[in-house]
């Protein structure tokens, strides 16, 4: 039996859902499969929580060989990994982590673009992770329609701040997840966009007791990658096992995220929160008011000679085949 050392890195702490499941699911699963033939055995060194890299540094850490396997939080890297924004630019389709994770992962494997982006960062793509079910709007005041968002300050982060463009006078205020409670409490913002699990972790019900179930959509944010030089030296048997288990990890984590989401919504209501289903017409109005981020995204890729438009169409089709019809057909507005 040959022993292979693997340094796993993430900047998030060991208690984060996807990190914990890497320890409790990914690693034992790989060990189990390798034990079946007995040719190889892994010697894992798990370095999480900033001991080698910060959350934003995983991509570079894997690139530079400070870790062998890493969980890259892709939303930090709009510039180096533009295609990873695929689900963020297509809101109002699927509030289901499993469907989004599978669709993005298939896009990554059917089109070379995503893998090429990682390859130019000297790493090999294994699988996509989705750790939240869907963004919702949490509010201090009762809320049911987009007119309730007009002229209000809404906390958000990254791409979702752009969902507010098109709503009259709505101003996006950037904030870290840990700040949302205070921002709402002091009235610095009137609303916040986050997912139910985060809302229950940070006791948002105390300060924003109304949740508008807008189902903005699940977003892919994690990718498991392997340093390219390390990968090239791995025996094929180990490569195969890593690839197989990565896909199972993808579904495992997405499934857990969905279970947690349900529990979190229940907890939110128990804690005194009210969930208001957003009217279909209102959702359509919001989607219609937004700029078509997906077309912007596709055009950007097309201009670089990548199949942006094709990826967008294929992604929409995959979700439709999985039973989710888009509130607004983003790809219908493509010019090519």
């Amino acid at each position: 039996t040959e022993t292979i050392k693997a340094v796993v890195i993430d900047g998030y702490p060991a208690r984060a859902l996807w990190v914990k499941e890497f320890t409790n699911f990914f690693i034992p699963e790989v060990d189990k499969r390798l034990a079946e033939t007995g040719n190889y055995e892994m010697d894992w060194q798990e370095s999480y929580g900033g001991s080698i890299v910060k959350p934003k540094g995983v991509l570079e850490g894997i690139k530079l060989g400070l870790g062998d396997i890493g969980i890259v939080t892709t939303i930090f890297h709009s510039s180096k990994l533009p295609t990873q924004a695929i689900s963020a630019v297509t809101p109002f389709i699927a509030p289901d982590s499993r469907a989004v994770a599978k669709a993005v992962d298939e896009i990554a494997k059917e089109y070379p673009t995503m893998q090429k982006e990682f390859e130019s960062q000297n790493q090999v793509y294994l699988a996509t992770g989705v750790v939240l079910d869907t963004y919702q709007v949490f509010s201090k005041e009762p809320i049911s329609s987009i007119s309730d968002l007009e002229g209000k300050k809404v906390a958000g982060a990254g791409m979702n701040l752009r969902y507010l463009e098109g709503i009259d006078g709505a101003a996006g205020v950037r904030g870290g997840l840990t700040d949302f409670y205070n921002m709402l409490q002091t009235g610095l913002v009137d609303k916040a966009m986050l997912w139910p699990e985060a809302a229950s972790t940070f006791k948002i019900a105390e300060v924003a007791p109304y949740m508008l179930k807008a189902d903005l959509g699940a977003v892919n944010s994690k990718t498991i990658t392997v340093n390219k030089d390390y990968w090239d030296k791995l025996p094929d048997e180990v490569k195969d096992v890593l690839q197989e288990v990565a896909v199972e990890y993808r579904d495992h984590v997405a499934g857990l995220a969905m279970d947690r989401a349900q529990a979190s919504r229940d907890k939110y209501v128990e804690a005194g929160g009210t969930i208001v289903e957003m009217d279909a017409a209102e959702r359509e109005a919001w989607a219609a008011a937004m700029p078509n981020l997906a077309v912007e995204w596709a055009a950007q890729l097309d201009s670089k000679g990548e199949p942006g438009s094709d990826m967008l169409k294929a992604y929409m089709t995959k979700l439709q085949d999985a039973g989710y019809s888009p509130t607004r057909d983003w790809s219908a507005e493509l010019s090519q």
């Binding site: 890299v53 910060k54 540094g57 570079e60 850490g61 530079l64 060989g65």
Partner: peptide, 14 residues
């Protein structure tokens, strides 16, 4: 040597 340089690279930028 490269790994040692890479450590400087990532820590200083980050």
């Amino acid at each position: 040597f490269d790994l040692a340089v890479n450590l400087l690279k990532i820590a200083i930028g980050d």
